Amino acid sequence: MAPSRALLRRITSASVRPCVRPTARFVSTCAISSQCIRSRSSIHSGLSRRLRFPASCVRSYSQTASTAPEPPEYLNEKELHVFNKIKAELDPVKLEVQDVSGGCGSMYAIEVESPKFKGLTPIKQHKMVNEVLKEEIKGWHGVQLRTRAA
């Protein structure tokens, strides 16, 4: 939703200029005065299209996106085994494993996002995961698998 005109007037008249981030749906403030936003019209249109920002206006994060995910503490023993096996083989940037069978370990929902999937069709991505979990899948009733290239 685009900001109202009154909000635009308040933002541009403030001593701290806004820093519009193209991936966010909100206007945050930045101490950089004229470097982030050039005019009121760019605020309005900046929410719907990409803008280029100076390095001083971009938030730095403590972790990079390529770090391997850590297993959540709520995983049971079987979920943790599946999590660690996929993590070791596919180096995912995002990995979620959930027993959806009610705790008996016969069906899992797995979501994997890995750079190793780049350029592969979804079927080939699924085959890679199936190959990693070949022995485990033999004892399962089913698996819900979602994959994505990072």
Rank of each mutant, 00 (worst) to 15 (best):
F53M: 10
C104S: 13
R25W: 02
N76D: 10
N130C: 13
N84R: 14
S114I: 10
V20C: 07
I123F: 14
T64Q: 04
E135F: 04
R59F: 03
R17Q: 14
R40F: 10
E77Y: 03
A6C: 01
P22Q: 05
L75A: 09
K134H: 09
I32S: 00
L120S: 09
Y74L: 06
M128Q: 15
R146T: 06
E131T: 12
R50W: 15
A14I: 13
H141R: 09
R21P: 01
I32A: 00
L80T: 11
I123D: 09
K94A: 14
V112C: 12
P69H: 04
S56P: 01
E131P: 01
I123Q: 13
E77F: 08
R21D: 10
L8V: 14
R59T: 09
A68V: 15
T64C: 05
V58R: 05
K94H: 13
K85N: 13
K85M: 12
K85F: 04
K127F: 05
M107N: 02
A31Y: 09
A55F: 06
P115N: 07
A149D: 00
A149Y: 03
R50K: 15
V132E: 08
G103V: 09
S34E: 11
K127M: 07
E77P: 02
K134G: 06
S101V: 03
S48P: 04
K134R: 11
Q125L: 08
V27K: 00
R49T: 12
Q144H: 11
I86Y: 03
I86C: 06
Y74C: 08
I37M: 01
C19T: 10
Y108K: 04
V97T: 01
P92A: 07
L120A: 09
K134L: 11
S42C: 08
